[in-house]
Design a protein around this nucleic acid. Structure first.
Lengths: 128, 128
DNA sequence: CTCGGTATGTCGATGTTCGACATGTCGAAC
DNA sequence: GTTCGACATGTCGAACATCGACATACCGAG
């Protein structure tokens, strides 16, 4: 039945790992841009230090969740040493599987009245 | 504005910790019952070993998320050595804050098309 | 009387995060 | 011209949590 039963074996993901997959799902980025985008997206609430980010990238490459999109020599920016990464199919599947896991937890939390009722957005949590 | 001392400072929670809070939010339980309830609730997908559970309980007690509800000598069960725990107000707040954090991540995942559109439940994920 | 389930707990190995440090470039301010 | 902050990548050690295995003990069924 399941064409790809694999991505679940990596769950659960840690928070930093999921945040990285999340920003990469929106497009290619280099390491520093991942940091900044996460910080921006969460209004400064989540900050990835380089000691978290770069080892995480290394593991994701090794596990085939992401691949290098080429070191770009941006013509407008001198010759910067930036390493760009993009999600692989597996990476997107892992991110999707983790998102479904989180979704199920949120539903459970609602059932136990830890959250406002379905459809209602709690104030101040629009985009973390 | 915040009447209580920042439950957010404990976030993010690890998966085992949140599962424990989740089952305790439904009522008092002893350690072994927590294990079995989590396993039951997730159709056997999540299993807490005792090496995860008991140290986690110890930390939660120390941080005031849970409190001992008394060692019960169940009259029908001889004198069993069971330690019951219940959520404190702080524990419920921490669980709620974590649930909101997860909710925001799910919304972000939806915005990035990692999940089916709003309101639709992906098949086979009703209660994990 | 042995086996499986209940019940609590420790131990060591492993893996991840976190903050600090290291290195180097670039443009703007002074 | 040099100092400063932002960009950019990376390593290191300490701290912490999980995980599976092991330890202990009681109980009832077969």
């Amino acid at each position: 039945m399941a064409p790809t039963p694999e991505p679940q074996r990596f769950l659960p993901l840690t928070a930093p790992m999921f945040h990285i997959l999340l920003v990469l799902s929106a497009g290619e980025r280099h390491g520093y841009a991942i940091m900044r985008t996460v910080e921006e997206r969460t209004a400064g609430q989540i900050r990835l230090g380089s000691g978290t980010l770069y080892p995480a990238i290394k593991r994701m490459l090794a596990d085939g969740w992401i691949e290098e999109a080429g070191t770009r020599l941006d013509p407008a920016l001198g010759e910067e040493q930036r390493r760009y990464y993009r999600l692989t199919d597996l990476g997107r599947q892992v991110a999707g599987a983790e998102a479904q896991r989180l979704y199920a937890l949120v539903e459970a939390a609602r059932a136990y009245h830890l959250l406002p009722e379905a459809g209602q957005h709690p104030a101040g949590w629009e985009g973390v």
